[in-house]
């Protein structure tokens, strides 16, 4: 017998701000999965109209944090407010005003670009009379005007990502949650998306973005929150974080492993901070101290990240 199968930002000092100006407010949020604590006492503020970047390696708790903001994960402890609404009880109202771009593509691949947007215009309750205009606008944002009737499985990776973002914008959300928006894309497509995201922020959309690309955080985020093992280890505007933790300049010394170990030991003795980067040692926090010969370069967010988390970024 055949059984038929149908497969079918900017502000760090949040306490002095009015709470209603915060698009997101987390206090002491803890989320455990069995013995693993994915998010461990996280405080997070996202001032309305800014872009906050959650920066951290895989497993730092970024995606779990994102899922808690749509009540797809429920916090074990602490309080979460999204657009002034308390989660999880008022999550549904909050979700109606949020756009979510997931890390993993979940478009309906057998549907066309337009059909995907039409479905989400319904799910996000765009009134009947405004749906067609909303879909046209989203297609414009995704720059997919000539692909309107193309099925998703025929689109390139970059186009699918643009559609995924457009889908999140079809109902004009006030808050956009972007989970690793450019992961796995080639550099040119990534830059295109950066322009798109930057544009949204300039239109006043509040954005929370998780990323493990340093450059992405540096370019787009007003405030960067560095996460490691479910905790916030630093927070501030990218430039301020660099100045505070890594100084203005770094010296990078190349050489054989024995030489690198020597340089490292000497720097630590002088009270400087170091970081291994494959074939070289970077010496940070120079503060005018003595340094060995090497290549001078501006300190960057990656230096801060490695210093604070002890982890290399993918």
């Amino acid at each position: 017998m055949v059984w038929p199968i149908l497969a079918s930002a900017g502000a760090r000092d949040a306490p002095c701000r009015d709470v209603s100006d915060l698009a997101i407010r987390l206090r002491g949020v803890v989320k455990r999965f069995g013995p693993i604590t994915a998010v461990d006492g996280l405080d997070l503020d996202l001032p309305a109209g800014t872009c906050v970047g959650l920066l951290g390696p895989n497993g730092a708790g970024k995606s779990t944090t994102m899922r808690m903001l749509t009540a797809q994960a429920i916090a074990d402890e602490g309080s979460i407010e999204v657009l002034g609404l308390t989660l999880p009880s008022d999550s549904k109202v909050a979700r109606a005003e949020c756009g979510v771009v997931p890390q993993l593509d979940n478009l309906d691949i057998t549907l066309t670009v337009e059909q995907n947007l039409r479905v989400f215009a319904r799910l996000y309750r765009v009134p009947r009379g405004e749906r067609s205009a909303a879909i046209d606008r989203a297609i414009g944002i995704a720059n997919l005007g000539d692909r309107r009737d193309t099925k998703v499985d025929q689109l390139s990776g970059g186009m699918r990502r643009r559609l995924l973002i457009a889908r999140a914008l079809v109902h004009r959300p006030r808050l956009l949650l972007l989970d690793e928006p450019t992961v796995g894309l080639d550099p040119q497509v990534r830059q295109e998306l950066w322009a798109l995201i930057d544009n949204l922020r300039s239109e006043g959309v509040s954005i929370l973005m998780s990323t493990h690309y340093i450059e992405e955080a540096q370019r787009l985020a007003d405030t960067v929150v560095i996460m490691s093992h479910g905790q916030k280890v630093a927070e501030g505007p990218p430039a301020a974080l660099v100045a505070e933790h890594a100084g203005s300049e770094a010296v990078e010394v190349y050489g054989p492993p024995a030489r690198l170990a020597e340089v490292e030991a000497a720097a630590i003795e002088r009270g400087q901070r170091t970081r291994r980067t494959g074939t070289s040692v970077s010496i940070l926090g120079l503060n005018g101290g003595e340094v060995p010969d090497g290549e001078r370069r501006p300190a960057n967010l990656e230096d801060v990240f490695v210093l604070l988390t002890g982890e290399e970024v993918a």
């Binding site: 749509t70 797809q72 549904k92 109202v93 979700r95 109606a96 949020c98 979510v100 997931p102 993993l104 979940n106 989400f120 799910l123 996000y124 309750r125």
Partner: peptide
């Protein structure tokens, strides 16, 4: 996942 991120 996509549907539950919406108000459903």
């Amino acid at each position: 996942d996509a549907i539950l991120a919406a108000p459903v």
